[in-house]
């Protein structure tokens, strides 16, 4: 699927690494292992080096995104307004940690340093919607609202399954 991307780059050109990874991520929504292996072979670096680069930058994801992305603001204003408790509540009810995706692939939980909506702190966003001045008691109803949304079919199911087997 991503093989045509390689046509636009020169083989063994290490400077092409980041744009290559970005384009691969555009195709899958994350960086599947197979794709990383192929990128490594294409740019002529070790797989370890490519994996290192991919994990260094926040823009690259190693796991597929869930259907809904919840972002918890951990900026100063939200921190003062106890956003940590929102995070714990979300982690508890989704049974995942920040940065992870639920098993049913419905939710991905992420941290953001500042959403830029400090006036309504503490804030979380779900997809493009903002939820400000909320407390722990509001979390169940927000999750429920998105629970029903169908799971987005992943483009590379096989790679997703492999992703779960981590040593």
């Amino acid at each position: 699927m991503h093989n045509e991307i390689f046509l636009r780059y020169n083989k063994n050109d290490k400077s092409a690494l980041i744009p290559l990874l970005q384009e691969v991520q555009d195709v899958y929504g994350y960086l599947p292992e197979d794709a990383i292996n192929e990128v490594a072979e294409f740019v002529g670096s070790s797989v370890a080096r490519i994996y290192g680069v991919a994990t260094f930058y926040n823009m690259f994801r190693m796991t597929p995104l869930g259907a809904n992305v919840i972002k918890v603001c951990r900026g100063t204003a939200c921190h003062v307004k106890n956003s940590a408790n929102l995070l714990f509540a979300l982690e508890d009810s989704l049974k995942i940690k920040a940065g992870q995706t639920t098993r049913d692939k419905k939710f991905t939980l992420e941290l953001v340093n500042c959403i830029g909506a400090c006036s309504i702190a503490p804030v979380i966003t779900v997809n493009e919607e903002y939820y400000g001045r909320i407390g722990v008691k509001d979390i169940p109803s927000i999750i429920k609202k998105y629970q029903g949304k169908p799971k987005v079919e992943s483009k590379d199911e096989a790679a997703n399954q492999k992703q779960e087997v981590v040593l």
């Binding site: 070790s46 370890a48 490519i50 290192g52 260094f56």
Partner: peptide, 16 residues
């Protein structure tokens, strides 16, 4: 190689 960044940095094998 080095993976992740900051406090989480570790030297590890591909995909850990």
């Amino acid at each position: 190689d080095f993976t992740n960044r900051g406090f989480q940095t570790s030297v590890t094998t591909p995909f850990n």
